[in-house]
């Protein structure tokens, strides 16, 4: 199944701003992140605090919904989902 990924802000230092990935049916957000980190190894420390634990302030939205309000890393993906990943900025 095809999943669209868009990343923003400093995460763009580590990978392309957007891409599409073909994942096996039943894949989760966690599996998607692992695949991205395999493709772009420097992304790993930018996203993960430790293996399996995403840095708290890294926002991951599935079709506009923060996975914090879904099932976190085990949130299931479906064909055509759009995943947006951004570390929010906080200065002013």
């Amino acid at each position: 199944m095809k999943i669209s990924i868009r990343v923003f802000a400093s995460l763009r230092d580590f990978m392309v701003p957007s891409l599409e990935l073909n994942l096996l049916p039943g894949a989760t957000v966690g599996a998607l992140l692992v695949e991205l980190c395999r493709m772009y190894p420097p992304l790993d420390t930018a996203i993960f605090q430790s293996p399996g634990t995403v840095r708290e302030f890294v926002n991951i939205l599935k079709n506009g919904r923060n996975i914090h309000f879904l099932d976190g890393l085990v949130t299931a993906l479906q064909e055509g989902d759009v995943i947006a990943i951004f570390p929010p900025v906080g200065g002013g």
């Binding site: 302030f57 923060n66 929010p88 906080g90 200065g91």
Partner: peptide, 11 residues
């Protein structure tokens, strides 16, 4: 949109 704030460190 942002359930967890970014670090409060100066940016």
């Amino acid at each position: 949109i942002v359930p967890h704030p970014p670090s409060a460190d100066k940016v």
